[in-house]
Write a protein that binds this DNA or RNA. Sequence first.
DNA 1: TCAAAAGTGTTAAAAGTACACCCATGA
DNA 2: TCATGGGTGTACTTTTAACACTTTTGA
Lengths: 231, 231
Amino acid sequence: MQNPNVSVDCVVFGFDKEKLNLLLIEQKLADKRKVQYALPGDLILEEEGLDQAASRVLKEISGLSGIYLKQFEAFGDPHRVKDIKDLEFLQSYRENPQARVITIGYLALVKMEDFAPEASSFAEKVFWQDIEELPSLAFDHDHIVECALEKLRHDFIREKTGFELLPERFTLGQVQRLYETILGKKLDKRNFRKKILKEELVTATNQKQKGVLHKPARLYELSDLKNGHNP
Amino acid sequence: MQNPNVSVDCVVFGFDKEKLNLLLIEQKLADKRKVQYALPGDLILEEEGLDQAASRVLKEISGLSGIYLKQFEAFGDPHRVKDIKDLEFLQSYRENPQARVITIGYLALVKMEDFAPEASSFAEKVFWQDIEELPSLAFDHDHIVECALEKLRHDFIREKTGFELLPERFTLGQVQRLYETILGKKLDKRNFRKKILKEELVTATNQKQKGVLHKPARLYELSDLKNGHNP
DNA sequence: TCAAAAGTGTTAAAAGTACACCCATGA
DNA sequence: TCATGGGTGTACTTTTAACACTTTTGA
């Protein structure tokens, strides 16, 4: 049974070696000529925890599972539903379409290639969207995404996290590009390398890249240390 | 009209020049021989935002207003209500005593002397309690308080906040004791002074303490800078 | 004259920042 | 032979951490 007043919304960022993308759904609307984009999210069930709800909802809507979602903020503006389109959508899919809903925002960051979303439930489509080119979203989802991005960058800087976005073996250049993508700014190559090697989160292997049209880079892997305590 | 599923709980820390205290209520129970302590908190109203609800609830229960409350986390374990006493309490004060409630935690830090709480609503008493000697609390409030403390310390370290806890004019020793109280550890006097003076958040006055039984300290006040953009 | 907190500098280590050239590869 | 990203070191600045003695007051 659904709780009519509390939902979760999942802000799932995907990294594809170059850009940050956001997982969005296209809502199924009665009038097929209209389109509306939104975050994957839905009401929680009476008997589940919030974290659990976030995982379930994400899976039901997009097919994605095994993603570590972290709660980041609750949104409870009484007028979160801003648009006539939002109301139409709610009328199709909610027992109490006019009930006030407080939503709990969840955040994740994944390797895009590992997750191929497939639409189901009330999602017509599910897809990755470059965050530089986001469309306007339903409800207050624009605002939720903004808050999530801020939180992501803030956390990224101080936790030594994010290596799970890289392939099993990776070059330091790839790591640097990951950091640059997420933080949205350029970093100095030599200083970056010095720092990351000192932290000993990565270990050099004897392998090198092949088939690249430049000097092949040494491949690294996660140190055992770091491999141990990922969330 | 109350929303049966969403509440706010306020974790209000008070600083009294020496110790950190927590604002607690003693719940009114039908059986007067039983006592139960809890955070000030209640269901939100259908037409109010979350921040608004937190302020209202705190005021209704404790009489305190004008406190800057910041959301820090949502708690939604389906079995948050752990105790028979909790149920008794809910039966007295809630229309749907068995409804599942998700609560949004709010955090504040104030100068204790500025706020003299007065119990009303379902609070028998409201009082400041030294956080070193907290009793066990109702629902999952122990857990909420733990999370709040962690958040408080984390934020305190990096935002240059907390000066609002000091008197209008204060000594650097007082500032240091404030930091030590909140962070829960000793700091080096010389390094602390160097740092705080460099940041230029405080300005020396020509006044000195009087009537103290040691060398009187110079008094400082907030710089105009800092006075401007407090939340 | 004593107790109690105020006040004050130096040094060493660590961390951060800026910066420019050669290298190995496949096309 | 060229375009491309890989790879490397040094000098400077800033930040942090450790540490001990003298001063002023009221009791």
